[in-house]
Each structure stands twice: as C-alpha cells, then as structure tokens.
Design a protein around this nucleic acid. Sequence first.
DNA 1: CTGAAAGCGCTTACAG
DNA 2: CTGAAAGCGCTTACAG
Lengths: 359, 359
Amino acid sequence: MTPQRRVTLADIAAACGLSKATVSMVLRDNPQVHPNTRARVRAELDRQGYVYHRGAASLRRAGAVNAVALVVNDLANPFFAEFAAGVDAALAEAGHVLLLGSTGESVERQHAVLASLVEHDPAALILSPAEHSSAARLRRVLGARLPVLLFNRRLDGDGPGDWDYLALDNRAGARLATEHLLARGHRAIAFFGGHRDSSSCSERREGYRDALAAAGITPDPAWLIECAPTRQEAARQTPALFVRDPAPTAAVCYNDAVALGLMAGLAACGRRAGADFAVVGFDDIAESAFATPALTTIATEPRARGLQAARLVLARLRGELPASPHTTIAPVALQVRASTAAAPDSPLQSSVQARGPAA
Amino acid sequence: MTPQRRVTLADIAAACGLSKATVSMVLRDNPQVHPNTRARVRAELDRQGYVYHRGAASLRRAGAVNAVALVVNDLANPFFAEFAAGVDAALAEAGHVLLLGSTGESVERQHAVLASLVEHDPAALILSPAEHSSAARLRRVLGARLPVLLFNRRLDGDGPGDWDYLALDNRAGARLATEHLLARGHRAIAFFGGHRDSSSCSERREGYRDALAAAGITPDPAWLIECAPTRQEAARQTPALFVRDPAPTAAVCYNDAVALGLMAGLAACGRRAGADFAVVGFDDIAESAFATPALTTIATEPRARGLQAARLVLARLRGELPASPHTTIAPVALQVRASTAAAPDSPLQSSVQARGPAA
DNA sequence: CTGAAAGCGCTTACAG
DNA sequence: CTGAAAGCGCTTACAG
C-alpha cells in the first residue's frame, strides 16, 4: 500500500530545470523569485503531489519546528479532554501541531512518555504533571533546552520553580464553595476526595479551611477524606462520610468527578444528593450541568484554560514573555445549581432545591 | 530560558575520543561495540544530557519515524476522547507517539489540519472523517504514501475504498436497539438525531428499518428527525417528536450525546425519560451509565476501538496485513438500563423502570 | 533572479 | 571492534 518513493525538492527542481535552492525559496514565498518561475514551480509541486518535510527543514533551520507537546493525566477524564481540545484549537489556529501523551497519573509512565515525545523535538511542552513528579527527574528527561509550561500542579521539590506555570485559583475556589455551603446553613462540612500531597488538593483544602476559620469552625479531622480523584473511588468512599455521628451534612469535593461519584454513592446508601446532603464540585465539566441534581460547582473553564496554556507557550516561543518564569493564576467562579440544598436544621430548609445564588 | 546549543552525537564522540558512527551504534544497541566502549559512551550520554533526534535519524533511515497521526471530530466529545485515549495507550505501549488533530466536523478545517500534520511525516494516519469528506480531495492532501485507517465513517464518492477501515456494526446495533423497544411494547418508534447523509447515520437508520419491517411496521416519515449529533441540538429538537398525534412513545437515538440531550429536552417539556418516553442511545460513553435515568444504549466500547485502531495501523506498518484494504466491523451489544420503559398501553407497563433485559 | 556548495544530526555501507 | 565518507531533504550564505 505504500510503495512510492517520496517526492522531494530535487525532483521538482529537476522537472523545472531549476536548482533546489530556487524551489526552496518558492516554498517559503521568498519574493526574490520571479513570478513566472514561482508559477511554474507551484504547478509542478502540485502535479507531483509534493509534501513538505518539516523535519528536514528544521534540521537546517531551527525555527521550522512547530510541534508542541501536551502531556496530561488521562484523556478519558473530561476535564483534561476539554483542556486538550482548547490547546488543540489554539495551536491549530497558529499553524502548530499537537503531540499528545498521557501519564495515567504514574510517574514511571510519565517518564517514558516524555522521553519518547522529546525525541520528536517539540518546540515546547505543556505538562500537567502526575502526582509525586520530581522536578529534578523531569529536568533530566527533558533536558535544559525545552520551554515548559506546567499546568494545574506544582512539582515535588521545586522551590520557586524555573518553568512557566498556569494554575487555577484553587484556594479561592474552594473558599467560595465552602462559603456557599456555610451560607446555606451547613456547619459540618467535609472536604472529600483528592490526595492531600498534590498541590492542587492541598491548595483547595486551604481555601476550605480559610472559609471555615472565618466562620469560627474548626474542621473535625474525620471530615477530611482522601480518595483517588475518580468517580468510582468517590462512590466507593462515600460511606466514610457517615461513620461518625453527627455526620457532615455537606461536602466540598476535590473535583467534579469526585462530586459526581459521591452523588452516585449517596444514592447507593439511600441518600438524595441535593436534598439530604449538599455537594459542591470543582471544575464545571460539561456533564455537571446535566447531572441529577445539577451540580453546584466551581467553574474553571477547562477549554479556556487550554486556549490560554497554548497561547502562553506560543508567546514564550516568540520571546514575548520576560525571561524569568511566568506564573498565571486563572480566576474561578462559583456556579450555583441544584446540588446544594440548605442544611436540615436551617431556616432556609424550605427551598429544598437551591437554585439561586446564596445571598 | 532556552539558550544552550543542542548536545549532539558529535559532542559525545569527541568527549569519548570516538567517531560518531560508534556512538550511533551504542544508541541503537548494536552488539558489535565493545562493552567497555558502550559503558563509556552511555555514561557520557547521560552526563551531557543527550537527547536523541529522531527527525535527523529518520532522514537517513525511514524506519525511525514512529509518530502516528490521529484526527477526530472533537476531543470534547467523550466518544472521541475515549477513543483517543485508547489509541494513545496502544501507541505508547508500542513506543510510538501521537500527533493529534481535530476537525470540528468541518472539511475545510480537516484539510488544513491534515496538511499540517502530514508535514511532520507521520508513519500512518487514523482518521475519523468529517461529514462530506471527499475521497479524492483527501488523497490529494495526504499523498499516496501514507497508510490510512478510516474510523467510523466512509467517505463521499469512495466506492470500495482503498484505505483500511474500522467500523462499528451500526446496522446491527440500531436493530438491537429497535428490537428492544419493540419487545417493550412500543410501536411508534422514532429515529432521532444525526445527519442521514453520514454513513454511520444511514447505516443505523437501516438497522432501525430492518427491525421495524420485521415487526410489520412502516415508519412514519415524521418519526425520522435529523439534528446535529450534539446534546444541545438534540435538546432543542425534542419538541419535533411531538408535533403529530399520535406521537412516538420511544426513540432510537443516533448516539448517546443525542440521547442525553433528548432526555434533557423531555424534562424541559414536562416528560419523564424512562417513564413517559423510552430512549435508547448508541455508544455507551462513560457518562451514560450515570445519567438519570441510566441510559439504555448500544455499547461500542470506544476505548477498545481506539486500542484496536492503533493495533491495526501498527500491523499495517509492520506489513502484517494483506496488501489489499482491510475492513473490520467491530461488534456491538445492547446495554439495558433504566431509560427504556414499557409502552403506555403495554401489558409490561407495570414495571415502569425497565431494569432487566427484555425477554 | 538563480545556482553551487556546505551543513543541520543522524545512519549506512565500506574499510581497516 | 572502530573510523572516514557519503547521504537523507531541506536551507543558508555566498557568488554570479
């Protein structure tokens, strides 16, 4: 099925009775070449079905590399899928191409994937690092030449960090979520899901503590429940919320996947999310608006973050960013939907399905 | 941030007092080189942080290209995200790298994206073509050298086709879906969503007609409703189901996105999916099992399809497939959940929430 | 306006 | 077991 030899600049040049240099200039729209020559070459290029070999070009001229690598945890996770879609859109618009890899949250796999991607000489890398990624080790695999933008998580052992960084405002988001539950009359509020040693989780927990502290509440350690940030694990861990009496009446979840899993877990133990127990997520993936009840959550706009990440990286490549590492904290907003009912003993109780924003 | 010159084979060779040829052999584990030499070279490679330049290698030796391109409609669509995750997993396992693009269902964008991807010299392409893709035009952009695997849709004007093809058994799936609704007592069954001029939609419509015909039912043209295969469009088109009296009591949907949108649309016009109206989807994306009611659908296992697609393409590259184009039809299975209630006038009516498979 | 030559980082015969 | 030279497909000075 693939017999033919590749059509090369030399073929076109020979067919036109020109040198490769001239044909090369036509390809890059160099105005020096005569319009007639240009037209002849164009016709021949088309006739022979020439396809430009960017790898060969980049060998001679470094600027020709236009691939950007993106490494995320898992594409099947809608948060990352929406993020990747945004990155892809911005790159395609700029004429760049996307090299994709995924880590499955394993540093070993991350290592292998990056080592493989980097051999393809991407111009830059957008990396949402796996948990427990070490800065030193990453630097070894990536070399010192590749501009890197970290997304969403910091690295273990990376003090100030010398890579660009795009983060969500995790702390503010979790604070908003918690304040919303407080406003709806809840006092015993859990923080559910995630691993506290990931920077995103610990930042969210801080925001949660901030809000509780401001309300004069000290969180019971039993309210802090870890689990892998997946729907399945969250559903499985749900009973852990109710081992103590009195149990929490609401939970701030590490992310939407956890929140959705928790809602399933609540149903499985005979509780109605949004009526008997309030839940708020983090991310606002597309699905959350359609859940039953619709999920109150913190909107992070993953697709917009993807666009933003790609644009930061392109700006870095064009030298439009200051030489020092650049940190961007994306703002985040509370999205009130139906999953955050008022607390059972609250005067707000009558409106079982909260729909408007808390006063 | 990216000052340093690239470390090259010549640097390593010089530092070791060897020739580039020897270092090159070490890189590819050529057993000819002396163990001591190998060790010295390895140490130096590591010390200088050498990273292999696959593009340069592939210029000399064609086999070195190990990128595979994947072009799908939209990553934010879970069906494609799960498919892409499968492709990625299989490629990573085989040491290949993924070049990703998306078309947004636009042939113009598809053209641009493919032209750009192809310049990076991928070893093969997995393409889920945009609607109305023309075989002739694709062949022009892609050249004749690139092995292509079409996924999910045929091309306009592509008779037998000379590219490999991986399809879902659309006709059988839609037949199963329709038979299930018939078994639950429905007679007026709509086919909802999709564009009939896409091959996947027309195949699904055929399966639907097959099942109705076998039951002696001629579908009312008003039961065939087209809409873009997205949740939003499906929700918007829902009222079209109920313009005629008597209206259908059930619908086979083009895919899960449409089915989920229809369920939202039903709610919006005061109907309860799974109780007042039965709906069955197609795909079984992760979300469908968690919908309320849980969606009865046709399981296509998108992730497994992705693994399969990648493996087919790798087999083609290794010359393990016959020279003629290879067509694979992936089997598909009915997944009964709660969204397919019995018809209102049916004796099965008592069990409003269907949970077991139809007898 | 066009061409001859050198070179990007690798690998491949071919010598030794 | 190791090296010198040529070449993959392009681009870049430098001549003319």
